[in-house]
Nucleic acid binder design. Structure first.
Length: 819
DNA sequence: GAAGTGGATATACC
DNA sequence: ACTGGTATATCCACTTC
């Protein structure tokens, strides 16, 4: 049979001791198809330089005899080939050793303690990664495939017992042009009586799919709702859920935080109720792998936890203060969660259940909409990294960089490097930091007419320009190399292009190409997504080489990258200073005063600068700004780094580092500072801002500020017992536990500082939870929130705001005598 | 017990 | 532990006089 096909989900099984890939996907008619495919498995034994041919022959004969009896599997060396390969850029001769079963390759590799063999590599990729590389059936691309239908008494009959339209044993695979693919999805969400996995009952489950909205519950209410389906009890609830999943038969089951909550909860309650949670296409139950984080897998259906993807792909560019569904939905969809005040189900009144159902349903609606929005990015991530959606939607960027590398090694005839073992990781972690970026110390002040240049993919371009990588690093120095002095000593890199910089060069070029193409066609969401995937890859590549867990870890390359980039930006600052005046710079950007020069002159100057830059280094205009403000540090008079506000030509204000953008300051201080910055930038002086601040101080003193504006939010970064210093948020967290509110690592703890009878020695003595009764501590908010937020800004204009507060204090005292 | 300092902690920038 | 280093700022914990 022949059909077109898009692969979505990958796993594998053993049959007669051998590995077979099982790939679930669809054809363009929407039929669900399971492919079964055989794949040779092999790894590499790299031979010592200069090993003689006859020795190799003898070695091959010895290796050929290796047999292994691992866990009842009879596995052996099936075949051996001698190849000319590259390893870390060096030419090597290597044995390609074919084994019976992928899982035993490590075992066979361990048997290869022969002198002639220098290294063993390529046994730790994971079968699916290996399969995709071998057979080039890349996830989320379209193929024309042919093969035999697996039916009835066939050899794979047992395995074919899947809920799919066809099961095919692959014969031929041909890549074809992309077609449109609209996945079928179910978004789901559960509500429970306890947030500890399996501890309380599941009250309801909502499911949202295309033209389908449903809440299943066992709670009987007087009023009936059309989208609510009432079942007998929790066990029927679970069964009904499985039935719907089976009936709708989605490609993806999508949740939010569902790896660690919804799916394991469902499984736990199924066990409790002794029902089978038969979600898999083979009616199997979800399985969980516990690494540092729990991951939930369903056979044949891709379980996606949107939180994970959002965390790696977007969080650094997002404004949201947390990655909660509410915050994320608000930012992406302009729509938040519904409001429902949780209580134990036994305490919820009959007429309140309707709200609960709606709340539950709406969460799934949000997840559904979020998925639709994010899907192009997930799709392109999968295509670019060439890893299945299940992996790519969970992996961090270091893993994504590594996936990209592993799937592109073949072009360089490279044997893959191994993962670092535990000891190696330990050693790398102990190394400590190397010297990083340069940050210019600004002179505090309000400036006018500012230009900002920055390097495009600064570190990525540096790696490419100077060929910085593990495989190009040289222990010995000579003239014809890229060399740089660092704190680690002189570091040198070969000029012969290495595969890592070469790959990165392609990544950066593609990114630029897609970005250009987008200009003519800005609505092409897939192109935009692809461009974005390449951008993120380029940005993470530098961090990857400095990351202790990386296969291609190179502290030298990372340190050299930072050093080269630092040297270059300092040189550029010097050049800019010949015509302009630099006022600030951080890592890859430079802000300078235009003075009497025009924008056109400045752009010409930029062109000239670019023509003098080495390699693929490129400066671009970030923007021209009307005004900019830099302030001093809180202690001392020197300019604060990483803290400034710019007013764009379009009237937009760009604020960096100030309390305004920090979530651990109360809303009052943040809003006030934001307004002060805008007023100062708009007017070019402090007059209006000063009046405004006086107003706020007055209101605060008259207790006219809403408590909600005084709430301070601080994240609990570790478990409560681990804190050595008991800071206010730790006290708040303790109070929460006392009053029965569950507190977990990672929670954003909210509190305010209340007045105390006696003068406090420590701030934490005034900590109260938001709904705890109390009067806010005026002194604290004036001295610790308001004043610090604006003090430095007014200092730029020679105004000491502290005096102003004291003045008012005196006035107030005088006034209060008469009142 | 006030004052000063370093450490712990959180969060931001690029 | 799940990309890197640089930087600010707060509040606590401890030392010192």
């Amino acid at each position: 049979m022949e059909t077109d096909f898009i692969p979505l989900d990958y796993d594998y099984f053993d049959f007669e001791g051998r590995n077979y890939a099982r790939i679930i996907g669809r054809n363009s008619k929407g039929k669900r198809i399971c492919l079964v495919d055989f794949c040779d498995v092999y790894f590499w034994a790299i031979l010592k330089d200069g090993t003689k041919d006859d020795k190799i022959k003898k070695l091959i004969e010895k290796v050929r005899k290796i047999k292994l009896d691992a866990k009842g599997r009879n596995t052996r060396v099936e075949d051996i080939e001698l190849h000319e390969k590259n390893f870390l850029g060096k030419k090597v001769r290597a044995l390609k050793i074919f084994a019976t079963n992928y899982k035993d390759m490590h075992g066979i590799a361990d048997e290869l303690g022969y002198d002639e063999i220098e290294k063993r590599r390529g046994y730790d990729l994971g079968f699916i990664t290996h399969y995709i590389i071998e057979k080039k059936l890349v996830p989320c691309n379209w193929y024309e495939i042919s093969g035999d239908l697996i039916v009835g008494q066939d050899e794979f009959a047992g395995i074919s017992n899947l809920d799919v339209d066809f099961c095919i044993k692959i014969d031929k695979i041909n890549k074809i042009d992309d077609k449109k693919f609209q996945p079928k999805i179910i978004a789901y969400d559960i509500e429970t009586d306890d947030i500890k996995i399996g501890k309380g009952e599941i009250l309801m489950i909502s499911l949202v799919s295309e033209n389908f909205k449903k809440v299943i519950t066992w709670k009987k209410t007087k009023k009936k709702h059309d989208y609510v389906e009432y079942v007998k009890d929790e066990s029927e609830l679970l069964e009904r859920f499985s039935e719907y999943v089976k009936k709708i038969s989605p490609d993806f089951l999508v949740g939010y935080f569902s790896d660690a909550f919804d799916l394991p909860y469902l499984k736990a309650r199924a066990e409790e109720n002794k029902v089978k949670l038969a979600l898999g296409l083979d009616s199997s139950e979800p399985r969980f792998s516990r690494g540092i984080e729990m991951i939930g897998k369903i056979k044949g259906i891709v379980h996606i936890d949107l939180l994970k993807f959002i965390r790696t792909a977007y969080s650094q560019y997002m404004q949201s203060e947390t990655l909660s569904l509410n915050d994320v939905a608000n930012e992406f969809l302009n729509e938040g969660k519904k409001i429902f005040k949780f209580r134990h189900s036994s305490k919820i009144l009959d007429d309140e259940w309707e709200n609960y159902f709606e709340y539950n349903l709406h969460d799934s609606v949000l997840v559904f909409k979020l998925f639709e929005k994010i899907w192009p990015d997930i799709l392109e991530f999968s295509r670019v990294m060439q890893e299945p959606i299940f992996e790519v939607s969970r992996n961090g960027m270091s893993k994504n960089v590594e996936s990209y590398i592993l799937h592109n090694l073949e072009k360089f005839n490279e044997i893959p490097e191994k993962k670092p073992v535990h000891d190696e990781i330990g050693g790398r972690m102990q190394m400590g930091k190397y010297e990083g970026a340069f940050v210019f110390e600004p002179i505090p002040g309000l400036y006018e007419n500012i230009g900002v240049f920055d390097f495009t993919s600064s570190y990525g371009s540096t790696i490419v320009t100077y060929n910085l990588s593990k495989s190009t690093f040289l222990e010995k120095h000579d003239k014809n190399q890229y060399s740089i002095e660092t704190q680690e000593g002189k570091l040198s890199f070969s000029k012969k292009p290495g595969f890592f910089p070469e790959m990165l060069k392609e990544i950066i070029e593609k990114r630029k190409q897609y970005k250009r193409e987008l200009k003519t066609n800005p609505d092409d969401v897939l192109k935009k997504a692809r461009s974005n995937a390449f951008k993120l890859l380029a940005n993470a590549s530098y961090g990857y080489q400095g990351f202790f867990g990386a296969r291609y870890y190179s502290r030298e390359a990372a340190a050299a990258t930072a050093a080269f980039a630092k040297k270059l930006i300092k040189e550029v600052i010097e050049k800019i200073n010949e015509e302009y005046k630099t006022i600030y710079s951080d890592t890859d950007s430079i802000a300078f005063l235009l003075n009497e020069k025009s924008e056109k002159q400045t752009l010409d100057f930029l062109k000239k600068l670019n023509s003098q830059l080495p390699g693929i280094m490129e400066l671009e205009l970030e923007g021209f700004f009307k005004r900019g403000l830099w302030v001093t540090k809180r202690t001392g008079t020197i300019g604060a780094k990483k803290k400034y506000a710019l007013l764009g030509k379009d009237g937009k204000v760009k604020i960096r580092g100030f309390e305004t953008v920090r979530r651990d300051w109360c809303a009052l201080a943040r809003k006030m500072q934001d307004r002060v910055l805008r007023l100062v930038l708009d007017d070019g002086n402090e007059k209006k801002a000063l009046e405004y601040v006086k107003e706020i101080i007055k209101k605060l003193k008259q207790r006219k500020i809403e408590k909600s504006d005084l709430i301070i939010k601080t994240q609990l970064k570790k478990s409560l017992e681990d804190y050595k210093a008991i800071s206010p948020h730790v006290i708040a967290a303790r109070k929460m536990i006392e009053s029965g509110i569950p507190v977990d690592e990672g929670n954003l703890i909210e509190y305010y500082i209340a007045e105390t009878k006696e003068k406090k020695k420590l701030i934490r003595e005034g900590v109260k939870l938001p709904d705890e009764k109390g009067e806010y501590d005026i002194e604290y908010y004036l001295g610790h929130q308001i004043l610090p937020a604006v003090e430095n800004i007014f200092q730029v204009f020679g105004i000491e705001i502290e005096n102003l507060i004291d003045e008012q204090k005196k006035n107030q005292n005088r006034l209060s005598k008469w009142m």
